[in-house]
Design a protein around this nucleic acid. Structure first.
Lengths: 206, 206
DNA sequence: CCCCTAATGGGACGAGAGTTCCGTTAAGAT
DNA sequence: ATCTTAACGGAACTCTCGTCCCATTAGGGG
């Protein structure tokens, strides 16, 4: 009579349920690579995953639910920050990691799909924000260490520096739709570092 | 027997055809504000525009065609660059113009829709690229003038400076989904300018 | 002013997405 | 090992989207 208070798939997270989830999310990524978010359908995902489409609708509700869950899955795979003892090398490592992710067929397609889904779905939007805030926080550490070593001015805003590294890459990928290559990544590192050394990332207020 | 070599609506661009196009693009923007690109349907657009749905399908083919045409329409509305005689003021004017556009209900929704459409449609992708390359080129002039006045190092890459101003705003809007406010715009100007003055935007090769 | 035809619009049609019902399977507790 | 029931899967159904056909309307040249 009463609806279960928890979502389907959370009470018995054992073997079959986990296998189904893995198969569905995997099929979702395949479909995103082939057709993009706009061409993603619950039917096709179910077929490719070898799963009943009833199950997909029951557990994920909609295509935006699929990509949001996919993003949450990726968020759990941590990417630890570099620590070479040199800010420039650390920031370059970050830029190259982002570059590689964006140019990877599967990951790049997934990011673009979630970005597209987030423009009109709150669940996907939250998944996206959570993913990046976590990554930014993790990598901001390299800036704090650089400040401690005296490489950057005291009060330099770590998360903002990390955002500044990524921003030009994503801007080209998703807004101006220009190629995102090694040179773009290097330039971003050089410019961000120049600004940081000049104190442009120091939080002004007390 | 033979298909007309031009698209429908291009042979008689007179009164009715123009009225239909205006009504359809207007309805498209309304729908984008309300439902986002993912919720955009040809049917709804036709209904809201007070136009037969056959007409919408014939002239625009698909929802991505609608947003691509909308973007091309916006591209024709030029936004001339500022010229205050001071780079910082000029770049700030640019940042504030972008900020205002992104936070405007209709324009902001339209940009996000075209960005979403471009992730899986070549036509929308090209419309987006054309729009921004034109704007970037237009505003790059303020950097060239600044170089002539001696405010920035010779060889500073104008288009890259303009991209650097916008990138953090779009990055927050569309990737990390954080608020885009006045402070973000100001910070972007300050950081870009610091890097530019340090020569980080000088094209290195001969 | 009249004619030609580009362009529009209504309605019927087929395909595919999304929903519901109910029988079947297997996780996990005893 | 057995039992309970969470979770899955097949199949029928509905509804909306996208396409097609043909009658009607209105540019724009003569």
């Amino acid at each position: 009579m009463e609806q279960p208070s928890r979502l389907a798939g959370t009470v018995r997270p054992g073997g079959r349920t986990a296998r189904v989830r893995a198969a569905v999310l995997d099929a979702t990524q395949d479909e995103l690579v082939e057709r993009g978010f706009h061409g993603l359908t619950m039917d096709q995902v179910a077929a490719k995953a070898g799963v009943g489409k009833t199950t997909v609708y029951r557990r994920w509700k909609s295509t935006t639910g699929l990509v949001a869950d996919l993003m949450n899955e990726l968020a759990n795979q941590s990417s630890p920050h570099a620590d070479t003892g040199d800010v420039e090398a650390d920031l370059r490592a970050n830029a190259l990691a982002v570059l590689e992710a964006l140019n990877d067929g599967r990951l790049g397609a997934t990011f673009q799909a979630v970005i597209a889904a987030a423009t009109c779905d709150e669940q996907a939007s939250q998944a996206l924000r959570a993913f990046y805030l976590r990554r930014i926080e993790e990598w901001a550490t390299v800036v704090d260490l650089a400040v401690k070593r005296g490489e950057l001015p005291a009060g330099t805003d770590g998360p903002e520096v990390i955002r500044a590294i990524s921003a030009p890459l994503y801007y080209r990928l998703v807004v101006t739709r220009e190629p995102v290559d090694h040179a773009v990544a290097e330039a971003s590192v050089a410019r961000t570092l120049a600004a940081a050394r000049a104190g442009a990332f120091v939080t002004s207020h007390g």
